[in-house]
Design a binder for these strands. Structure first.
Length: 773
DNA sequence: AGTATCGTCGTTTTT
DNA sequence: CGACGATACT
């Protein structure tokens, strides 16, 4: 379009940036570090910077942009497409570290001895494999706990210590010996070998093997160095050593590397993220240009400054001063409750009140917590108030049993040597191939250094004397998988998936289960199949999965490539107007007008595991910083004095973080079951309650916040009681309207009003400021 | 081989 | 509390 060309010739987007944002955008060449405070327009800079590069005439094929989540990648891609057009933007390599390097590994897999359609083991697969190995080694699984072993292997991989290195390293041997786990090296070796034999990589392998690839095949490294002449990395503070080294190698030739991050928001240390990467970037590239984005466009002054008062308690940080031009806003409210259920009640109540008095949507609210298990009490309370919500994270769609079962079939058809997939489905639905049989097969496979699949193909060859009935069963299972395995390159993903679903008997079994859960499971499977259908039919422009350029038929193989890297958050859901419930980790990068942070208690937040080391505690504090800075308008922090944990009642102390907040930005409240109490009507709290509840913190209630008082002015309450259907009324925001309906009982009367030029609104008479005309 | 029941253990946070 | 594994029984 002509208009587009005009826009491209004269990019006006630069005028939408402030000075430091623009400077960072224009600095295209050389190493660049952008330290971006919370809400400072980081994504905007990244997007415009890439758009600008393309305007300058750089080839999109030479740009690599790495993000932290698939969602972030997708959003950025759309935004860039809006500026430079899709023709250009689609050629940019953009995605998470894991997805981008999985893609590269697939095309170079043969060099490492892997099939290009290798499976990606998720955490459950890895855990199950570790358990199996511990068992085979006859070790005590009380000592060799799968989670612990996995964590140990994971950190080894993230620090580029291979199984062989690990096993022969005397320092590590000492360490493991002292922690009474001398066999860890052997387990790691076995784990590594089994993954390889199953044609599988775990999450950490995707990065580890990329490093191996670049280390051992310099011509490959050279090729990708030449391709990715410009590299951009988002959320750099959350990268680990393995990722750091990949970047270092890739960027070595041109050194056009731009990292964006905020050391104050580094919250993935537990996963191996190394905050030193960002702290040391300057030393790494001495001629780096550093830009600081310090103006916050998201939150009120109270929120920004309260957050600053927290993060200033940390020692390890890059000096910067986040500030805002926004209004002062309301103080952060702290609410004390007696139990987790009451906490939920208070939160739901407050949401209800704000929603109706300020005419807000559900999607304006978020409830954030430290651990997923905390969502339950909140959910219950929201349900009682009839407030629509959605829990993010937790059990994702792809982690449900029925979905994993079917996916395991798909995995097996794509890659029959996938051991975890095979184990999962060989007796599902029941085929009379039980554990004893499987154990024998596993033993034979490991004795002969081959896959379970090989053994099943011809048990006799491996000396297994099974009764003929069993042989028949194995034979037909083998044939089932083999048929579809051979069919898989020829037909599209949906056709194949449907065939497998019915031929395997999975669909039938679920269909015959008429319980409520059974129907739900059946529907989930249908949803998965629909998703595959969509994948086949769509143009996949906005697909998360990058398709090979020379694609003629969308096979199941292609669909399965990145499925293990998808999380629930990446799935588009259509219920948009809902309150969001999620962990603080999951909330990173998001923003909401009203934010509730629940469970502000010692041993919960900060977590029990973190209070013994300064660096862990600092990470928790950064997490708290992230939580507060999600909010645009208001923050409510709550804690309970008792809560159920592991089914038993425990007593809790308020979190130290509450005390660390500078009291000028905070106001205390104790929870009561008073429906009128909310962000608006804080002032009720002043007259009541306080004396009876000794306050654990310095309170600063003398100053009365003007905004709060203004909002809670309720001079019109009595007038509203008289409102009737048919009357014409005036609302301060929506203007003139006609009352079409009234329902609810005296205290909670709700009026449906048709406003001129705005449409129908439902208002609670208790809160709406209406004037009868 | 499959199922029912009881005991165990654990909890951060996630690509 | 709830998931999972080991045990014992059909």
């Amino acid at each position: 379009m002509f208009f587009n060309l005009q826009q491209m010739a004269n990019p006006n987007y630069l005028s939408e940036l402030n000075e430091s944002q623009r400077a960072a955008t224009l600095q295209v060449e050389g190493p660049v570090m952008i330290i971006a405070g919370a809400g400072s327009g980081k994504t905007r800079v990244l997007t415009y910077r890439i758009a600008h590069m393309i305007h300058l005439g750089l080839d999109a094929f030479n740009i690599l942009a790495l993000t932290f989540t698939n969602k972030a990648a997708r959003e950025m891609k759309t935004r860039i497409a809006n500026i430079v057009g899709e023709q250009e933007s689609k050629n940019i390599w953009m995605g998470t570290f894991h997805s981008v390097f999985a893609r590269i590994l697939r095309s170079e897999a043969q060099l490492l001895g892997y099939p290009s359609n290798f499976t990606i083991y998720d955490t459950d697969d890895s855990k199950s494999l570790v358990k199996k190995i511990v068992k085979e080694f006859n070790l005590d699984d009380k000592v060799y706990k799968p989670n612990l072993i996995l964590h140990r292997i994971s950190s080894a991989k993230n620090n580029l210590i291979s199984a062989a290195n690990y096993a022969e390293n005397t320092v590590i041997q000492q360490e493991d010996y002292q922690s009474k786990k001398p066999e860890l090296g052997r387990i790691y070796l076995a784990y590594e070998k089994r993954c390889f034999q199953a044609g599988a990589m775990d999450f950490d392998d995707l990065l580890f093997k990329t490093n191996v690839l670049f280390r051992d095949f310099t011509e490959v490294l050279y090729r990708y160095q030449s391709k990715f002449q410009y590299i951009l990395v988002d959320e750099y503070q959350d990268t680990n050593f393995s990722q750091y080294l990949i970047l270092k190698k890739l960027a070595a030739r041109f050194e056009n590397i731009c990292v964006v991050g905020d050391d104050a928001q580094s919250i993935y240390g537990f996963r191996g993220a190394n905050i030193q990467n960002i702290l040391n970037f300057k030393t790494e590239y001495p001629d780096v240009k550093v830009f600081k984005l310090e103006q916050n466009y998201r939150s009120t002054k109270n929120i920004v400054e309260a957050a600053n008062s927290i993060i200033n308690k940390n020692k390890d940080r890059i000096q910067k001063e986040v500030w805002t031009d926004n209004t002062q806003g309301d103080k952060l409210k702290i609410v004390k409750t007696l139990s987790d259920n009451e906490e939920g009640f208070e939160v739901a109540n407050d949401i209800f009140n704000v929603k109706h008095s300020l005419q807000k949507n559900n999607q304006d609210f978020a409830v954030l917590y430290r651990t997923n298990s905390q969502s339950r009490a909140i959910e219950e309370a929201l349900r009682k108030k009839d407030i629509a919500y959605r829990v993010y994270g937790g059990l994702s769609f792809y982690q449900r049993k029925e979905i994993k079962d079917l996916l395991a079939y798909f995995r097996l058809c794509v890659n029959p040597i996938d051991e975890e997939a095979l184990k999962r489905v060989i007796n599902l639905p029941k085929r009379g191939i039980g554990n004893t049989t499987l154990d024998k097969i596993t033993l034979a496979a490991s004795e002969n250094q081959t896959s379970l699949w090989e053994v099943i193909q011809n048990p006799l060859k491996f000396g297994l004397k099974f009764p003929s009935a069993l042989l028949g069963k194995l034979r037909s299972f083998h044939e089932l998988i083999d048929t579809y395995h051979r069919l898989s390159p020829q037909i599209d993903a949906f056709q194949l998936a449907s065939k497998i679903a019915s031929a395997s008997g999975v669909l039938k079994e679920l269909y015959s289960d008429k319980t409520v859960e059974g129907t739900a499971r059946y529907e989930n499977v249908q949803e998965l199949l629909n998703g595959i259908k969509e994948f086949v039919e769509n143009d996949t422009v906005d697909s998360i999965i990058d398709l090979p350029e020379d694609l003629t038929i969308k096979t199941l193989d292609i669909f399965m490539r990145d499925i293990a890297l998808l999380t629930d958050t990446d799935k588009n859901k259509n219920d948009t107007n809902v309150v969001s419930l999620m962990t603080i980790h999951a909330a990173k990068g998001l923003e909401f007008p009203y934010v509730y942070v629940v469970g502000m208690e010692e041993n919960l937040f900060p977590s029990q595991m973190s209070i013994n080391s300064r660096s862990d505690l600092e990470e928790e504090r950064r997490l708290f910083y992230v939580a507060i800075t999600r909010a645009e308008e208001r923050v409510m922090l709550s804690y309970a004095t008792s809560r159920y944990r592991w089914g038993t009642l425990t007593y809790c102390e308020p979190s130290r973080f509450l005390e660390e907040l500078d009291p000028i930005y905070v106001q205390q409240n104790t929870g009561t079951h008073d429906a009128a109490k909310s962000f608006q009507s804080n002032f009720e709290g002043f007259s009541g309650g306080l004396n009876s509840n000794p306050n654990p913190f310095k309170s600063n209630l003398k100053k009365v916040d003007k905004t709060v008082l203004a909002n809670s002015s309720d001079s019109d309450f009595s007038a509203n009681a008289a409102i009737e259907v048919g009357q014409t009324v005036l609302h301060q925001r929506f203007g003139k309207g006609k009352v079409t309906e009234i329902d609810g009982n005296s205290g909670n009367k709700k009026a449906t009003i048709q406003f001129d030029g705005i449409g129908k609104k439902q208002l609670l008479l208790k809160f709406a400021k209406l004037q009868v005309l």
